[in-house]
Design a protein around this nucleic acid. Structure first.
Lengths: 210, 210
DNA sequence: TCTGAAATTATACACTTGATTAATTAGCGT
DNA sequence: ACGCTAATTAATCAAGTGTATAATTTCAGA
């Protein structure tokens, strides 16, 4: 007849835990499985508590999407290092096609969220921001790398290269993360670096060394 | 007090209508909005009837996914025409980055389904089949096109090119279909053809003519 | 040590969902 | 024209959903 024991937690911690539990639920059970009760259970908390930290379930999911995307881009960007622009670009590519960015769990969460973008304005806005941020990152690296090589590109060409490279990286990321195939046997990093170099008109052998 | 009038329909028609209604629901309301009642309403039918043609809602959704993917690949393949292998490859690319393949509605449905693949074995199997079919199509076209040009590729190289081209097309398809940006101003077909040509080591100007 | 405010739980509600079943209707074969 | 089978509707159910609120517990500050 006694209530379960509990501890007070700072707001930031509880919000973080709830978001983490939401992402876990989505990864394992899909978006439909991320019910208020399931999330609360995984966070070691009672369903009602969620409402103290998030107005809606909708708000909770949106917040989870925001942190997920922001973390994802941060992980990719972290692979850049701090060398030349060309080596930073190579680093971004490496990070994009290897764990933890390219990963089944990550893809599952991304896919679940993407499925909501079209019919949910709140999710659409969050998506747009993340997409923009990633393509800006790519475009900047391309511009700096080409300038560094003494082959500066026009704004239009920079935009075109941004579109193509973004598509190429996204596609490879999905393909590898999905990974029904035995990508383990294949050197995905080399494939990614070589194809990007080819698109940029850089000698693949040279780019590989970066 | 009279019941609503109705008409008997052959099994194939009803199944088709129900699947179409399911896809419409998903496109407009997302997967969560594709309830039994919503689908029935759009099909001009009563909820209970669905169970006569599909064991589960799960089976209905899986069937919708199967026809969706199969139609999508058929639409892309229809762009190939029946000329040389190189021109068929160019046709596939054109079709992949223009409507009705590259299209907001199509992407929305695809995204909704993709979000379920990881947590639903039935959907996973359907996905695998469609993915396999599309990459086989690309690999075959690449092999034939390169052989036709007197530059036959090894199996390993063919596989590598298949991976890269598939990624590139998928990525472009998503980017264009999402279309938050003003892709209307940009010649996406030219971008797609040029980048594929570059990856294949073919002169873009030549490929563009195909 | 005690008290009050904040955090957390417990309980309940209204609603939607997918599923089930019996009653009714349509339309083909005879 | 008519009956019979299959198709369709109507009505209902149990389970699960997000949400609301009151009762309880924790814990910092006096």
């Amino acid at each position: 007849m006694t209530r379960r024991a509990f501890h007070h937690q700072p707001e930031a911690v509880r919000q973080h835990d709830l978001i983490a539990a939401t992402l876990d639920s989505i990864a394992e059970l899909g978006l439909a499985g991320a019910t208020v009760r399931e999330v609360a259970y995984r966070a070691g908390v009672t369903p009602g508590l969620i409402r103290r930290y998030f107005d809606n379930k909708e708000k909770l999911v949106a917040a989870a999407y925001r942190t997920f995307i922001s973390d994802l881009i941060a992980m990719a960007a972290a692979g850049c290092g701090d060398g030349s622009a060309l080596s930073r670009l190579a680093g971004l590519i490496r990070a994009s096609v290897t764990a933890p960015v390219a990963d089944g769990r990550t893809l599952s969460i991304w896919a679940a969220f993407i499925g909501t973008v079209h019919s949910d304005p709140l999710m659409a806005e969050t998506h747009r921001e993340g997409y923009q941020a990633f393509r800006d990152l790519i475009e900047r690296l391309v511009r700096e790398a080409m300038a560094e090589r003494g082959q500066p590109v026009s704004p239009a060409e920079q935009r075109r290269l941004g579109i193509v490279l973004n598509a190429l990286l996204d596609g490879l990321w999905i393909e590898i993360s999905m990974g029904g195939d035995d990508f383990a046997e294949i050197d995905v990093v080399r494939i990614a670096l070589d194809s990007v170099a080819t698109v940029l008109g850089i000698d693949p052998a040279e780019f590989r060394e970066e």
